[in-house]
């Protein structure tokens, strides 16, 4: 009897996860349906975000926040991928054994720092440096992208390091015995062996960068305007939500839910793609 209750409760808990996920999709869709019916797919290409006068609904388009999200993520990935690979290589092949543990813990601590701290630090200490070196107002795509990169590096390097560590020693040793240099072993033995997991980690990190809110909110400038230079301020989906959601009403609120639905669907697709095709099915 107790056993049956215990088992049922565990099944119920497991199903709850399914329910929450379906509910998120369902609720976001139903709140977004006003905007979806009004703007349809044109929402994706409309650059206006203009609340109407009085009872007039206004025109809302997601083009600018969508482009802002993609560009900031692109900059972050361009910077983060080489650095994360470098760190993983350092930790698996280069570092003195005594250094491996403290350095990997330190890099993981970087991942534990709350994102709002990155935002504050970035705004007061990093943005001025960007302003001095590249011009602009300090806050903008580039600043947000670089700080985003710092945030996703530890995550990417941790998975990459673990994947690289699974390369069998004999494979590496036979390559060394042929006179290969360390770099050649990394390039021709370790990389091919751990390729799929590395690609998986990069895509997973991409999914994280797309949805990161607080750090970007401090740094991207939060203006609904298309950037013409890389140092220009703009906005992203999470940032627009964070700053304007609470005050929005009616059609604007519904458009916000539309944006949230797009973000959630895109991250869902990206993360499942990374999981199923590259990181192997979990048993």
């Amino acid at each position: 009897m107790v056993g049956k209750i215990f088992k049922d409760f565990s099944l119920l808990s497991a199903i709850l996860i399914l329910v929450i996920l379906v509910a998120i999709f369902g609720i976001l869709y139903s709140y977004a349906s006003d905007a979806i019916h009004t703007f349809g797919w044109d929402f994706l290409t409309t650059t206006t975000w203009q609340p109407g006068e009085d009872d007039d609904g206004g025109i809302f388009g997601g083009y600018i926040p969508i482009v802002g999200t993609l560009l900031a993520t692109l900059i972050a990935m361009l910077i983060a991928v080489p650095i994360a690979m470098g760190i993983a290589i350092f930790l698996t092949e280069v570092a003195h054994p005594l250094l491996i543990k403290p350095v990997s813990i330190a890099i993981e601590l970087l991942a534990a720092i709350p994102s709002i701290i990155y935002g504050m630090w970035g705004l007061f200490y990093f943005a001025p440096i960007i302003q001095q070196s590249f011009g602009g107002s300090g806050v903008g795509l580039l600043t947000a992208g670089i700080v985003l990169a710092i945030m996703i590096v530890p995550f990417m390097s941790a998975i990459t390091k673990d994947a690289m560590n699974t390369t069998p020693g004999v494979l590496k040793e036979s390559a060394y015995a042929m006179g290969a240099t360390k770099f050649e072993v990394i390039k021709d033995v370790i990389m091919p062996y751990s390729k799929t997991a590395i690609i998986g980690s990069v895509i997973l990190a991409l999914g994280r960068a797309l949805g990161e809110t607080m750090a970007v909110a401090f740094l991207i400038g939060s203006i609904v305007k298309l950037p013409s230079k890389v140092t220009d301020p703009t906005t992203s989906i999470p940032v627009l939500l964070a700053n304007n959601f609470a005050e929005a009403q009616d059609l604007e609120l519904s458009s916000m839910f539309y944006l949230a639905l797009i973000l959630f669907a895109v991250s869902f697709i990206i993360i499942s793609f990374a999981k199923f095709y590259f990181l192997g099915r979990k048993r």
């Binding site: 497991a14 199903i15 929450i20 949805g211 999470p238 973000l263 993360i271 199923f276």
Partner: peptide, 21 residues
């Protein structure tokens, strides 16, 4: 299989979406 993977996906979902939900 389904629940395990969906749970993993939810773990990486943007946190602002949870707030909106």
């Amino acid at each position: 299989f389904v629940i395990r993977n969906l749970s993993d996906i939810m773990m990486s979902a943007p946190s602002i979406i949870i707030g909106v939900f």
